[in-house]
Design a protein around this nucleic acid. Structure first.
Lengths: 187, 187, 187, 187
DNA sequence: CATGAATGAGGTTTCATTCAT
DNA sequence: TATGAATGAAACCTCATTCAT
């Protein structure tokens, strides 16, 4: 793996653990095993690393979920696949997922500039459910339950509060959310 | 209001808007209308402000929810009151609530030192529901849905995504969460 | 004298001796007897010092020459006074004058943003001479002779190449330039 | 043209446009189309480029003017030829001429090390005119007028302030300077 | 000859904190 | 109590130079 990717990798780790401002360029350099100056051969600024990480992983999650949705046939399958792929990404890329949440929190308004925001997929999904008459809950509220639950399930699993296999947790969470939003199993 | 309280007030505003690291002592001083040095007459350090704000507002939210729970007679009333008082606090003290979330994000590990963590109340509440046989969902998952939804409802309301009166939103959210966790209206 | 003025004074000295890029903020701080950080309580950036010095001294020279021109009665008196006051300023503020030339050389295009450029006064003066029929030389060429000579007279005097009293040098130079541009004494 | 010469050429362009400190080795490398490391195959250091450029072009101008002087028969012809060849060099090698001026500004004291300083030729020329009784002006002052005017004529022509053909400007300037220094046409 | 990654010294800037007044 | 100047450590960044390939 090239130095550039190593920098991104270590930066992601550090950012997601300590926060962005709390991580210095020197911290990143040390983690990679190079000097500060070398960082700037690969990135114009610390901020560029910050943005590139967001774009990359936001895009990866977006693509992952989008593909899952596109493969599915019926609305329930779409929803379940979306939620499962979302959680799957989070579990497999915990640093990236933590980082995305952190980034959203700290750079709320700047986020709009980016094209692939996974949140938009979930929003569209909920909207679709509404249009097709599945939704039993006000869509905005549904979205709050959906996104809030996803983040917390990840968090509590990471913290060790939620036991069991990740695969089962994914399935269980997806089914629960489907039931919540549609009021029962229509599968 | 004394200078000390003004400092806390402005610091809270700035911290919750921009972040803690992103807010300088000078920013706070200017917002209050005093100079940097004066801050140190009232607080030993910036960190002291940070922690005091957390303790104050975390405690306030904790007390508020606890009192609501204690007043209630039956389990459903307890739950509904807890959720409503929680959201009520958030809507009435948006800076404080945003700050608490932000603080948690960035200082995850240090939080354990504090005695009054609202999260613990919600956890106990869910546990109680389980013991009394109301809970239809695994308690940890229930907790994830509960806390995740609360945060997002606040967030989306603040962002203007959720319309309607706050009072109704509170009621609706509480009822929805009750239904989710217990599987329907037992009231 | 306040620290702010001391900073400007020492910066001017250093800039005019060594160049702007060649002078570090630390050099300035040391010359003043403070630390680097203290500089930034008084100026937003090194560049602000650079610009403020130009504005101040460019403005001072401009005002000085303008006043001299306004006091004079006839065209010759105007010209002689302008040249003499120009050289007088240069001799009395050698650092400032060296700095102005340096700044022009390095920031040619940025100079246009500033309102009080002494060069403009000389240009207008030559133009006036032309309109009134005194000028025997093409005005642009006249301007080249005028400004070029002024700078070199200052430079050679500073280097010790030109002997004699400054007062006499001023007078002699002014008279010579008048003769050059008008073709003889019309006084 | 070999890489070495390309480096000198591009460095000269950049130095004269932006300044020496303001031009990085990387800038030069990019302009040439090679990488930074390659520069060091041809030059020991950036400073070596700086000095070599000075020596080359200072020498070229020196030789050019010297040859013109040597070809001339009488004093006036010497003077006129010197001035014309000087301006001719400047107009044909504007980067080099700008660079020489810039270099003088910033490295004033170190210049003495070099053997071929065009200024010395002009100085000797003026001295000769004095010895032969042509000079009507104090020699040091004459030198100031001469060198100052030459630099400004170049500068104003470059800036577009002086119109007309370069050839005519050269002739006109030379004649004007002759008249100034000797008090009229003795040709 | 050339590349391109890396170094390391040093530059500008920020900021929590101290202190004389 | 408050000011405001100053400190000093540490942050981000630049760049001439070196070096393995």
């Amino acid at each position: 793996m090239g130095t550039r990717d190593l920098i991104l990798e270590e930066a992601l780790k550090l950012f997601s653990e300590r926060g962005i401002k709390e991580t210095t360029v020197r911290d990143i350099a040390r983690a990679v095993g190079i000097t500060e100056g070398a960082i700037y051969r690969h990135f114009e600024s610390k901020d560029q690393i910050v943005y590139e990480l967001f774009e990359t992983h936001s895009g990866a999650l977006y693509d992952r979920v989008k593909k899952a949705i596109e493969k599915a046939k019926d609305p329930k399958d779409k929803f379940i696949s979306a939620v499962e792929s979302f959680l799957d990404f989070a579990f497999k890329n915990p640093d990236a997922f933590r980082y995305l949440n952190l980034f959203h929190y700290l750079r709320g308004k700047e986020v709009r500039k980016f094209p692939k925001i996974p949140f938009q997929l979930l929003k569209a999904l909920v909207e679709e459910l509404r249009e097709e008459g599945f939704l039993k809950v006000e869509p905005e509220l549904a979205l709050a339950v959906l996104t809030g639950t996803l983040e917390r399930v990840f968090l509590y699993k990471e913290m060790g509060m939620l036991k069991g296999r990740k695969k089962e947790l994914r399935t269980k969470t997806a089914q629960l959310l489907w039931n919540i939003l549609t009021g029962g199993d229509h599968g």
